[in-house]
């Protein structure tokens, strides 16, 4: 490797010390799953609106504590808008179709603490740690590979849809809202066809990449950063469980 190194040093003027302490991301996947499960229980057992709001605020506070302030404010703002829209739907219940919208919004608002917690857990969890943590949870190899491909694919899909939409915006003479109002089926088709096209291709490419990089369901893997359940993880998971229990007792 010396030759390569020397070539590269001649070519790249920037040197930086890359030896960083490899600290696992927080929360750990296993603690995170407990937190998400706790919030799922909350949305099922806590009946009052106040309880749901408090649970969401609790999850947002955790985001702030773990240094995800930007995302926390955004999620919070979206939540506030959803709550307002839901209230408006309750008031305008006599107008046709509005009750259906209200029901949909209620479902979203009720499950919001789960979304926030899910985002908090998965927002910056490196793939290697997810895989290692799942291996420790004794997830079978084949299932693990499938889950990982899905996990890898979701953000890709979001990116693909974004590219396709910007392409469509440039393509058409009419603004998007008018197109969607006039020809909703055609518009849907024009979004879905390229997405499906790309999905098929990406699935193929990802699988080929996995094969080339030696991902083997039956082999023992190591992890560059070994995920560890540390006191902070126990504390976070415990706090979530305690908060849900507290909400049920106090305002449930």
């Amino acid at each position: 490797m010396d030759l390569i190194t020397s070539t590269a040093q001649a070519l790249s003027p920037t040197h930086r010390d890359t030896t960083q302490a490899a600290a696992p991301a927080k929360p750990d996947l296993r603690a995170g799953l407990v937190m998400i499960a706790a919030m799922a229980v909350e949305s099922a057992v806590v009946r009052t609106g106040l309880g749901s709001v408090l649970a969401t605020l609790f999850a947002l506070t955790l985001c702030l504590l773990l240094g995800a302030a930007r995302g926390a404010w955004k999620l919070g703002a979206v939540y506030a808008l959803l709550l307002i829209a839901q209230r408006l739907c309750t008031i305008g219940g006599a107008i046709p179709l509005v009750p259906f919208l209200g029901i949909a919004l209620t479902l979203v608002v009720k499950a919001y603490p789960i979304y926030v917690t899910g985002w908090l857990v998965f927002r910056s969890l490196p793939m290697g740690e997810v895989m290692a943590a799942m291996q420790k949870l004794l997830v079978p190899g084949t299932l693990l590979v499938v889950l990982i491909v899905v996990y890898r694919y979701v953000p890709t899909l979001v990116g693909e849809i974004r590219v396709i939409r910007s392409g469509a915006r440039l393509r058409h003479a009419q603004p998007a809202w008018r197109r969607w109002v006039r020809h909703p089926v055609t518009q849907c088709e024009h979004l879905v066809v390229p997405v499906l096209m790309r999905t098929g291709r990406i699935a193929d490419e990802l699988a080929a990449v996995a094969v080339c990089k030696g991902l083997d369901p039956d082999a023992r893997r190591t992890a560059l950063v070994a995920p560890r359940v540390q006191p902070v993880d126990v504390a976070l998971a415990g706090a979530c469980v305690a908060a849900v229990a507290g909400l049920k007792v106090l305002v449930g």
């Binding site: 793939m127 991902l215 082999a219 023992r220 893997r221 190591t222 992890a223 560059l224 950063v225 070994a226």
Partner: peptide, 14 residues
């Protein structure tokens, strides 16, 4: 992680 991925698959020590 991307650089580490093939090595992790091969079971190389961290």
């Amino acid at each position: 992680s991307e650089l580490a991925f093939p090595c992790e698959n091969a079971g190389i020590e961290p």
